[in-house]
Simulated scan of single mutants.
Amino acid sequence: ALIIPQTIIVDEKGQRVKLACVNWPAHLQPAVAEGLSKQPLDSISKKIVSMGFNCVRLTWPLDLMTNDTLALKVTVKQSFERLNLLDDVLGIQTHNPKILNLPIFNAFQEVVSNLGQNGVMVILDNHLTTPGWCCSDNDLDAFFEYPNFDPAVWAKGLSKMASLFRNVTNVVGMSLRNEPRGTRDYPNLWFK
């Protein structure tokens, strides 16, 4: 018989916690958490709690950790403007003016912080390498042995993300990579 060990998550008091997570994408072309042009960040966080969730799987592109120009020199406003998403710029200016002129990574930190202020745990999910739509069977950066997936860059990005959020108490986990996909033999690739 196969015996699978059970993992139990406990809070700071040693009480068992069951995760009830919702997905919040921040890995698409703007590299900013979706919906901030439609509602205030705090309203979104409170809505997550009111729907019975205690956790967010917050997606992020590897470039957020490995491309300092994107992460630290491009503001939220600039990110949306370069994609010609001018209505979203106006929406963020209306609903979340505090983040409009922040660098993209700082806006990501604001989302994590606000979720924490509302008692929501976060699992940081590395979704893909370059901001964009994910996922398909012919995705070029899906995982090991794909032409646009560099294991050294991936490990560097994961390490940097873990270091930056290591003392953020509402960050309770990190996914290593979203949904291995395509036609490769993933179990054997892991052992290489």
Rank of each mutant, 00 (worst) to 15 (best):
A33D: 00
K160A: 06
L70R: 07
P180N: 02
I123P: 00
L124T: 06
S43C: 05
G116W: 04
L90Q: 14
T75L: 01
N148E: 14
P151S: 03
P61G: 06
V172W: 06
P103E: 10
H127S: 06
W133N: 11
L19Q: 10
G35A: 08
L41A: 03
C55I: 06
T66E: 05
L100M: 07
P30V: 04
T69A: 04
V49E: 08
I9S: 08
K47A: 14
I48T: 04
N188Y: 09
D137T: 11
Q6W: 00
P40F: 01
G157Y: 00
R57G: 06
T66I: 09
S113V: 00
T69N: 11
N178W: 11
V74Q: 10
L86A: 01
L128S: 08
N118L: 06
A20H: 13
D88K: 07
W154L: 05
D137S: 12
S175F: 08
V120A: 00
L90G: 05
L176G: 13
D125G: 07
M121W: 07
S159K: 14
A31C: 12
N67E: 08
A33Q: 07
V74F: 03
R57K: 12
L164A: 10
A155T: 13
S163K: 15
T130D: 11
P103N: 10
L86N: 14
A26Q: 07
N106W: 04
E145D: 15
H95Y: 11
E81L: 01
P40W: 03
W190V: 15
N178S: 15
Q93S: 11
V22Y: 09
I48V: 15
N138L: 09
Q117E: 13
K98D: 11
P103I: 09
V111H: 05
I9G: 00
K38Q: 13
R16P: 03
C135W: 09
S175V: 06
E145V: 07
A142V: 04
M121D: 06
K38D: 12
L124P: 02
G119P: 05
L70M: 10
L128C: 09
D87K: 10
I92Y: 00
Q6V: 13
E179C: 09
D150F: 00
T183Q: 14
W190Q: 14
P147S: 12
S45F: 04
F143A: 05
S50Q: 15
V76R: 02
L124V: 13
A26H: 08
K98P: 03
L70E: 04
Q109C: 13
V120T: 11
N138W: 12
L36R: 02
T59F: 03
Q39T: 08
V171H: 06
A20K: 14
V168L: 04
M174V: 05
Q15T: 12
G182K: 04
L62I: 10
R57E: 12
A162L: 13
Q39L: 08
L164Y: 13
I44F: 04
R177Q: 09
D139F: 12
V172T: 03
